[in-house]
Design a protein around this nucleic acid. Structure first.
Length: 154
DNA sequence: GCCAACGTTGGC
DNA sequence: GCCAACGTTGGC
């Protein structure tokens, strides 16, 4: 089983939104970066565990754990001209972008970006690399174990 | 709002 | 295939 990290702006979809969703499951949509898409399409499998990261907000950091609940399928927003994620170059016959479902595993006490940076054990984490902007990325097993052991109750 | 870093686009 | 221009991300 692989481990991942996904960024979401809490103004759009927060960990609380996942918790409040039917079956505590939400559609992960709007990824428009090829590297992130490839991780979703080629790497993510049902049951994989995912750190849910809040970005572009007052307190960026890890907010909980979700799990992959479906394999990838075409992201419906790419076909919707009314959506901000509309991609005129995508078609039903040749979709470009994928979505998948994620389900809540648990919320946690926020583990902030500043705290993450303070752990020497996490110095090599992709999330913390200079200029890292990927919204979907793998997490090494050792990094996962280290972080999971430090997630408090919400 | 600023700005560094990065990805994408498009002219050549 | 190069690379400048542009757009986006995301922390601060």
């Amino acid at each position: 089983m692989a481990h991942w990290l996904m960024k979401s702006e809490p103004d759009e979809v927060s960990i609380d939104d996942v918790a409040a969703a039917p079956a505590q499951t939400v559609l992960w949509f709007g990824v428009r970066n090829y590297q992130a898409r490839n991780f979703m399409r080629d790497g993510m499998r049902v049951g994989d565990q995912v750190l849910f990261y809040h970005s572009s907000c007052a307190e960026p950091g890890i907010a909980g754990i979700v799990e992959v609940a479906s394999t990838a399928f075409p992201d419906p927003t790419q076909f919707d001209p009314a959506s901000p994620y509309y991609d005129p170059k995508a078609s039903a016959a040749a979709p470009r972008w994928v979505s998948l479902d994620v389900r809540l595993v648990r919320r946690c006490a926020p583990l902030g970006l500043k705290q993450l940076r303070a752990f020497p054990e996490l110095a090599a984490m992709r999330l913390l690399a200079k200029g890292s902007r990927l919204s979907v990325m793998p997490v090494e097993a050792a990094e996962w174990d280290f972080i999971a052991a430090r997630l408090g109750a919400p």
